[in-house]
C-alpha cells in the first residue's frame, strides 16, 4: 500500500487529512431523525462526490499544467464558457442533443489552445495569459447567453448530470473515467514523463530532444478540454447553460491539485493525489454547509487551505535541502 502510494506520488499526509477531516465533519454535523449523523448518510456522501466531480475534473486539468511548471487561472471561466456554448447550440440554435457535448468540449479545448498558443509563441507568462483568459472567457459566456441562464436541455444531456445508473450519479462515472485516463497519460506514457521533465528542468527537456513548445501547447489544450468536460457536467447537472458557472472554481481546482501533492513549481504531479485533494475540498465544503456556515466563510477557509498547503510544501523543501 505504502509502496503503491509512493509510486503514484500520493502523499500519505493527504489521505490522513482527508480521513481526519471526514471524522471531524461527521462528529460536528447535525443528527437526522433516525439518529444518524447527516454527514454519514449515503445520499450525503454521494453529494460530496457529485460536487467534487465538477471541480475535480477541473483540478485534473490544473494538475497537467502545474506539473509542467505552468499555471491556468482561466479554468473556472472556461468552464462557464463551455457550459453556455454547449447549451446555446442545442437550446437556442436547436441543433441535435449531442451538439451540447461537442460544443462544450470544443469551446473548452479552443480556449485552452489559445492559452497555449500565446504562452509558447508570444512568450507571455502563463500567469498573465490565463488571467486575461479568465476575463475573456467569462465575458464571452455572458455575451453569448445575454447574461441569463439557458434552460431546458434534452433528456440525453440531463442523463449525464442527473441519472443514477446502479445508484451512482453519472458525473461520478465521468470523473472516474477522466481520472483513470489522465492517470494513465501522466504516469505511464512518454507524454507524461516529458510533462514532468519539462516542469522539473526545461533545459533538460529541450536537450533530450523533447519539443517543449508542442508539449506546452498540448498541456494547456488538455486543461481547457477538462474545463469543457466539467462545463458539460455542470450544465447537465443543473439543466442550465450558466454563464456564471465555475466562478472561483480555479481556486478550488488549483488548491485540490496542490494539496494532492502536485508541486506548484513543476516536476511532480499525481492524478490520484489530485482526486484525494478534490475530495478534501468537497468534504470541507459539504461539512461547512451542513454546519450552516455561510458561503462567505467557506471561501476564506479554502483560500487559507491553499496558502497553508504551499507554505507546508516550502518548509518541507527547505528541510530536504538542509539534509
Amino acid at each position: 500500500m505504502l509502496r503503491f502510494l509512493e509510486r503514484t506520488h500520493v502523499r500519505v499526509e493527504s489521505l490522513a487529512v482527508l480521513a481526519a477531516l471526514a471524522i471531524v465533519m461527521a462528529i460536528l454535523s447535525p443528527v437526522t431523525g433516525s439518529g444518524v449523523r447527516v454527514f454519514l448518510t449515503a445520499s450525503n456522501l454521494f453529494n460530496i462526490i457529485l460536487a467534487s466531480a465538477t471541480f475535480g475534473i477541473l483540478a485534473i486539468g490544473a494538475t497537467f499544467v502545474i506539473s509542467a511548471a505552468g499555471i491556468d487561472l482561466s479554468l473556472g471561466s472556461v468552464l462557464g464558457l463551455a457550459s453556455v456554448a454547449g447549451a446555446s447550440l442545442v437550446v437556442t440554435l436547436e441543433f441535435p442533443w449531442y451538439f451540447a457535448i461537442i460544443g462544450s468540449l470544443a469551446a473548452g479545448a479552443a480556449a485552452g489552445a489559445v492559452n497555449g498558443f500565446v504562452v509558447t509563441r508570444g512568450a507571455v507568462p502563463a500567469f498573465i495569459v490565463t488571467l486575461g483568459m479568465l476575463g475573456i472567457a467569462r465575458g464571452l459566456a455572458l455575451i453569448i447567453s445575454d447574461g441569463r441562464g439557458i434552460y431546458g436541455l434534452p433528456a440525453e444531456i440531463l442523463f449525464l448530470g442527473q441519472a443514477r445508473p446502479w445508484g451512482v450519479p453519472t458525473p461520478v462515472f465521468i470523473f472516474a473515467a477522466v481520472a483513470l485516463v489522465s492517470h494513465y497519460v501522466l504516469a505511464h506514457t512518454p507524454f507524461g514523463h516529458h510533462t514532468l521533465a519539462l516542469g522539473d528542468n526545461e533545459d533538460s527537456a529541450r536537450a533530450t530532444g523533447i519539443n517543449v513548445n508542442r508539449q506546452r501547447m498540448a498541456l494547456y489544450t488538455i486543461a481547457g478540454l477538462m474545463a469543457g468536460i466539467a462545463g458539460l457536467v455542470f450544465t447537465a447537472r443543473v439543466n442550465t447553460g450558466d454563464p456564471t458557472a465555475g466562478l472561483n472554481y480555479e481556486l478550488l481546482a488549483i488548491t485540490a491539485a496542490i494539496i494532492g501533492g502536485t508541486n506548484l513549481f513543476g516536476g511532480r504531479g499525481s492524478i490520484l493525489g489530485t482526486m484525494i485533494g478534490a475530495l478534501i475540498m468537497g468534504v470541507l465544503q459539504n461539512g461547512l454547509n451542513l454546519m450552516a456556515v455561510q458561503a462567505y466563510y467557506q471561501q476564506m477557509a479554502i483560500g487559507t487551505v491553499l496558502i497553508a498547503a504551499v507554505w507546508l510544501d516550502q518548509i518541507r523543501a527547505r528541510g530536504r535541502r538542509a539534509q
Binding site: 514532468l196 521533465a197 528542468n201 527537456a205 516536476g267
Partner: peptide, 26 residues
C-alpha cells in the same frame, strides 16, 4: 550526444527515467 555543464538532469525524476528521458521504450 551532448553533456551540458549544468548536466541538464531533471532533479525530481529518478535515475532510470533521467537516463531514458526523451527516448522512453514503450
Amino acid at each position: 550526444e551532448m553533456i551540458y555543464q549544468d548536466l541538464a538532469l531533471a532533479p525530481q525524476q529518478d535515475v532510470a527515467n533521467n537516463i531514458f528521458l526523451g527516448r522512453e521504450p514503450t
